[in-house]
Amino acid sequence: MLSLGRDTRGSVLTGSLLGAPVRVAAVDGYALEQRAARLAARSVKRESKEAGLELAAHCIDLTTLEGADTPGKVRALCSRALHPDPDDPAMAPVAAVCVYPALVAEARAAVEGSGVKVASVAGAFPSGQSHLADRLDEIRRAVEDGADEIDIVLNRGALLAGRLDVVHDEVAASKEACGRAHLKTILETGELGSYEMVRLASMVAMAAGSDVIKTSTGKLPVGATAPVALCMAEAIREFSDQTGVEVGLKLAGGIRTSKQALGYLAIVAETLGPDWLTPDRFRIGASTLLNDIVLQRRFRRTGRYGRTHDLPVD
């Protein structure tokens, strides 16, 4: 159960899984956008850039979520995840591969023993508009097939209708269905309409036991944006300050260039501190980004500009 109340200082969430009520701060949208733009535009050079890109590559959830995914395509994706740059065996693998539930077993077999995790979207991704029992069943099956992490979508319909208790209970049930697997909850911020709503959705998802909150499905034209990333990072910090529970952040949707990735690293480092910049707590859901990072590394190694044609695309 969860309810949203107000006192003289603002909004307060009271939830069955929370030790004490959690305060939800108001959001100053203008300040948020200004600060996010400033952080994302920070110029990062040389050694810091190298370290940043290394870290970004190490935090990637290499993703393929297409209707046309085949077992072969998933094996190719896993091979890219294990050896992002075929020319440089020293390049560390990415954090995880992210696939549809039906392909989890294939991915599991391909990355077994490597330390690369298998993530799967489940729960009627990307809309989430299905019966709860079916969604939970999908989660359980994906976990049985070997998924380490489950990405579910928040019930935006219920959230926008004001049924926070429904949203909360569904996420809590999903968390229970996950068992040992980590639960990442996708807010799909492009459909939430305001930063206030993003902040509230973040708090509800965290109060219901999500291990990670995630910006977007990647299926909408609007994916992760700098202000939304900052807004969610601030919510995570607020939640951690009040409850001591440290929730991770995953950014997904439209992150294609190294420059964008460095901008997001700056936002997380400045808001949550360097402790959050580990694959356990920070992820970037992407596929083309990895190629851009590989090209940057090659340029540093050879002093020549490479071309995208030389790298696998999916």
Binding site: G303, R304, Y305, G306, R307, T308, H309, D310
Partner: peptide
């Protein structure tokens, strides 16, 4: 030299 070296 940058153009001559450029793979693309």
């Amino acid at each position: 030299p940058w153009l001559a070296d450029h793979d693309d």
